[in-house]
Amino acid sequence: MSEMKTHIDVKATVDSKNWFYNDTVKEHFFTPKNFLKDEKEVEEFEKVSNGVGQVGSPACGDMMKLWIRVEDDVIKECKWQTFGCASAIGSTSMLSLMVTENEGMKVDEALKITPQDIVKRLEGLPARKFHCSVLGDKALRGAINDYFRQSGQDDKVIVEGAKIIDKILKITDKDIEEAVLEGARTLEEVQKKTKIGAQDKSCIPEVEQLIRFYTEKYFG
C-alpha cells in the first residue's frame, strides 16, 4: 500500500475546511453519542427504557428510533438508532446529549426542544439538511408520549393534528410543512411534491400563505 502512486491533481479532502458539515456535526457523525450499535444492545436497553418513539421510513431516506428511560419525569437516558445521512445521525446524537446532560432534562422541558435548538447546538447545518433535525425532535416527542401512556399520564399525551387544506386531494398543512422542509419554496415546487391545488383551486391563497409561514419558521 505504501507504494501507491499519488494522483496528479487531487489531494486528500479529509480536512475540516473542505468538509460539507462543520466540526461539531462531523464529531457527532463519526463518534455518535448514546446510540445502540446492534440488536443485542437494543434488546438490553428495552428492558430498562420506558418510552420509545419512531419517525420516518427507509423510503423517505430518514428513519429514527429513540428510546428514553425516565425517572420522576426526568430523562435519565436517551438511546437511539438512525438510518440517514450525516446530519440525521449528528442531530439525533446531539439531541440525545441535550436531554440527558446535567442530570437529565424534565420531560416538559424536552417537549419544548425545537429543530432550531438542535441546529444551534450543532452550530449550524446546511439549509437543505434542515429537515433531518426535525425528525429528531418528532421522535423524541413520540417517545415522551409513549412514556406518558406507560406511566398512566394519558392526559398529557399531545396529539399533533393536521388540518386539511386541499379538500379534494385531502392534503394537509403537515404535507406543506414537509414539502417546505424538503426544499420547496414556491407554489409550483410544493405542487410538484404534493399536487396540492391541482383540482381544488380555491385553497391556493392559503397554500401560498402556509409556504411563507413555514419558510419563515424554519429558514427565516
Binding site: V10, T13, P58, G61, F83, A88
Partner: peptide
C-alpha cells in the same frame, strides 16, 4: 439498510471519493 450519504462520508474519511 444503509443510507448512501453516510457511507460516502465514511469512505471520504478513509480517502475514497
Amino acid at each position: 439498510d444503509v443510507e448512501g450519504e453516510a457511507v460516502l462520508l465514511y469512505l471520504d474519511h478513509r480517502g475514497v471519493c
